[in-house]
Design a protein around this nucleic acid. Structure first.
Length: 776
DNA sequence: CTTCATTAGCTTTTT
DNA sequence: GCTAATGAAG
């Protein structure tokens, strides 16, 4: 028994109450940024159950990310307790995945243990097909591009060639490649992300009985981020809900930023057309940001043509003006942010209050450098690398083959990992044998032994896979996972790998086992398929959270739905934001503007925008104009900020007006350039080199960044002597730092070494990892 | 068949 | 500045 913890109508404004209390029939909620969208959905779920007597299992709530789904469930649970768990609350993809696993019989060519293919798997398929067709795989025929074209065509529900210019050399062949790709998926009993949606639609269309069953089951449907639905998702909603059904969609056309992926804002207007008597509620009061921030955001978005459905307002007061800083180059832009962050910390903000938003992932690098140098811990959201790690992908591939022995993409990945002497030639033979036998484990031992064609070296692997496949269902998932990796020899192979490499990989595998345990604990009916689905459908932004005291770094896209007291948006330059690929295209331009709008509206108290006159892109210097978005917001809305080292003035050109001093100065500030330059040798000593040459994605707890930056706190109290011994420095030593120049060692504290640098001042650095060299 | 080294190609955003 | 693919040598 769970008492109502809270009245679902408590603390809502009149529009929100109207949205929450709406009972039957379609409802369209136009919710501006920060207007309490998630709040309305969760409270509506609560009210339907507690106030209107709807059964929890009759409710289907769909989101785009696992994170949003989880958050919604948490919040609903806080209002109504355990009943919230019985609501079907899922992403579109995971909902479809579940439906398919249950109903797949209706699609004869698939069985319920189908694999889910990610982009990399899809590319591999395309590559094989190109090889088959003897076509090139470069330029216009790059597998990634083809996969992209195929995916877009599915999202737009059209043929791939229809979306290509007729001049595209690919246009002629793409449909054929597409056909073979689909056939290959079927052969492998696999679905790509798009097919999870598409096949579900197909299934519901092909079987009225199933469709009606789901319609009866889900009397109430709620859709979050409705503006991001694509054609297929829209059609799915129409299958699941009759025209006068109880469907509530919540969206904001101004936050539509996934048009490139097939999201169709047209679905907002289609909704009123295709569903009957649609009620509309508009939420305009913003509970997140100070008015100055909203004014800037409103001014920006006003430049997108079309009627303004709403104008955000806030009762939180004007707040500080939005700030703008023009930096010399990307590293001084990053330095500006670090300096500013320092001030903010002095003022009482915490690191986790601060978010730095950028357009492209590549922009994180200089920021990371600056944060590392300053010893400020940060977290890159969305760079989960965990599931992209080789050992994890291998482990998943093993499991996939065991679960679905038709999955030849997974098999190709692991056949020779560890080395079993199975090269491409052997692989081909195994594949054709598998095709003949129906699946890998269908290859009979006798037939294989009899055939001179069949590589004998493959027999043990196939045997192990067959045996493990048989254990499916009778052995608990975590044990099965371990058995798969141990019995195939993969685990010991990883363990035996040389030194650090092997250790961190084995650690990651242990982490993976832990995931399996967690899954088994929380799933009502754990299965290998369930576990695989789970790991296949996690998105990058799902993991990153936690209340760790770190600044956040993330793309504008992954910022949607989040909020932070302080937001920096960097790189407001033509070609960057708006991005070069969107220039010259009116739709693209508008979407870029919305992207910037989304970023700006993430800020609660302080919003900083910055641009730089020049930046390094792909190792090449280039200079950009200040983004049109800055002009559109209007100069009088900004407080202009100078950086510690002086900002550049508008109109001044970066690399060409200052060929001598100017660019040299810039080069000196950029560690990346120095590293590649002549004095790289100076830093080739092991710990030093390691620190700066290894990839610096900070998402992993084991990254160099995290070790130096903050974990050091935990070593407080470590004997000073040990530290001294470890790093070989003593107080008074003159040292040189790759970035900070020369200085003198002042003292030690825990794992940290304090150094007084000539121009910079005293810095606390990690004794073990700081790139310090003793000089005479 | 494997391993190592060099090179080409590329980076917008992601369930 | 990175990954993945290709090529040469073991």
């Amino acid at each position: 028994m769970n008492p109502i913890k809270k009245d679902p109508l408590d603390g809502l404004n009149p529009s929100q109450v109207e949205a929450v209390k709406h009972f039957t029939g379609p409802l369209l909620i136009l919710a501006g940024a920060g207007a309490g969208k998630t709040r309305v959905i969760t409270h509506r779920i609560a009210y339907l159950i507690e106030g209107l007597g709807v059964m929890p299992y009759e409710i289907l709530a769909l989101t785009f990310t696992n994170k949003a789904a989880g958050e919604m469930r948490d919040r609903a649970e806080r209002i109504i307790g355990d009943n919230a768990r019985k609501v079907t609350l899922a992403t579109f993809h995971s909902f479809c995945n579940h439906l398919l696993r249950r109903e797949i019989r209706s699609l004869k060519e698939y069985s319920e243990n189908f694999s889910i293919y990610d982009d990399a798997d899809a590319r591999r398929c395309v590559k094989e097909i190109l090889k088959e067709l003897d076509r090139p795989m470069t330029g216009s025929h790059a597998p990634a591009r083809i996969v992209d074209a195929i995916s877009r065509s599915k999202n737009f529900a059209t043929s791939p060639s229809a979306l290509l210019s007729s001049f595209d050399p690919l246009a002629e062949e793409i449909d054929e490649i597409f056909k073979r790709y689909e056939a290959r998926l079927v052969e492998n009993n696999a679905m790509d992300f798009d097919n999870l949606l598409g096949k579900t639609l197909e299934l519901l269309d092909g079987c009225a009985e199933t469709r009606d069953r789901y319609r009866r089951r889900y009397q109430f449907i709620l859709v979050d981020e409705y503006q991001d639905t694509n054609r297929v998702q829209y059609e799915l909603l129409r299958r699941l809900c009759p025209p006068d059904g109880n469907i509530t969609v919540v969206g904001d056309a101004d936050q539509s930023i996934y048009g490139w992926r097939g999201a169709d804002i047209g679905n907002m207007t289609s909704f009123e057309r295709d569903f009957n008597n649609v009620a509309v509620v508009s939420l305009e009061q913003n509970y997140r940001s100070k008015q100055n921030i909203l004014d800037a955001a409103n001014a920006l978005i006003a430049h997108n043509a079309g009627p303004r459905e709403k104008r955000l307002w806030s009762a939180l007061g004007p707040g500080d003006p939005v700030m703008f800083h023009l930096a010399w180059d990307d590293s001084s832009e990053a330095q500006f942010i670090v300096d500013e962050a320092g001030h903010l910390l002095d003022e009482g903000y915490r690191l986790e209050d601060i978010a730095v938003l950028f357009r492209t992932r590549a922009q994180s690098r200089p920021l990371e450098d600056a944060f590392i140098r300053a010893g400020l811990p940060y977290l890159i959201i969305g760079a989960t690398e965990f599931y992209k790690r080789k050992e994890i992908k291998d482990a998943i591939a093993y499991l996939r083959v065991v679960d679905n022995p038709r999955d030849m993409v997974a098999f190709a990945r692991i056949a020779n990992e560890p080395k079993r002497g199975l090269g491409p030639k052997s692989l081909e033979k195994i594949e054709s044998a598998a095709r003949e036998a129906g699946s890998l484990i269908g290859i009979s031992e006798d037939a294989a032994a009899a055939s001179k064609q069949f590589p004998a070296k493959a027999a043990p692997l196939i045997g192990a896979l067959r045996r493990l496949h048989g254990l499916r269902g009778s052995v608990p998932v975590p044990e099965l996972v371990r058995a798969v990796l141990e019995d195939t020899g993969y685990y010991s192979y990883v363990e035996r790998m040389d030194k650090q490499e092997g250790v961190s990989r084995a650690e990651n595998l242990e982490e993976f086992f832990k995931l399996a345990h967690e899954y088994a604990k929380e799933a009502s009916k754990p299965t290998l398929e369930g576990f695989l689905s789970k790991v296949s459908l996690v998105s990058d932004s799902d993991v990153a959270d936690g209340d760790e005291s770190r600044a956040r770094m993330l793309t504008l896209h992954s910022a949607k739905g989040l909020e932070f007291p302080v937001v920096f948006i960097v790189g407001l330059e033509e070609g960057m934001l708006p991005h070069g690929n969107a220039l010259g295209d009116a739709d693209g331009d508008r979407e870029e503007r919305r992207l910037c709008y989304v970023g700006a509206t993430r800020a609660k108290e302080l919003l900083y925008l910055s641009a730089c006159k020049g930046r390094m892109t792909r190792g090449v210097a280039c200079n950009n104009d200040i983004s049109r978005f800055i002009m559109e917001i209007g100069p009088d809305r900004f407080k202009m900020l100078e950086g510690a080292r002086g900002g550049a003035r508008p109109g001044e050109s970066f690399f060409d007006t200052a060929p001598g001093g100017g660019s040299d100065e810039a080069v000196e500030r950029s560690p990346a350039i120095r590293l590649g330059g002549a004095d790289a040798d100076d830093f080739s000593r092991e710990p030093v080199d390691d620190d700066y040459s290894t990839p610096r994605r900070a998402s992993s707890k084991k990254s160099a960044a995290s070790r130096r930056g903050f974990d050091s706190d935990r070593f407080d109290g470590v004997d000073e002597e040990i530290v001294r011994e470890k790093c070989g420095f003593r107080a008074g030593d003159k040292v040189e730092h790759k970035v900070f120049g020369t200085g003198r060692v002042v003292s030690f504290k825990g794992d940290e070494i304090c150094v007084a640098f000539e121009n910079i001042g005293i810095k606390r650095l990690s004794a073990r990892y700081a790139p310090l060299v003793k000089i005479d």
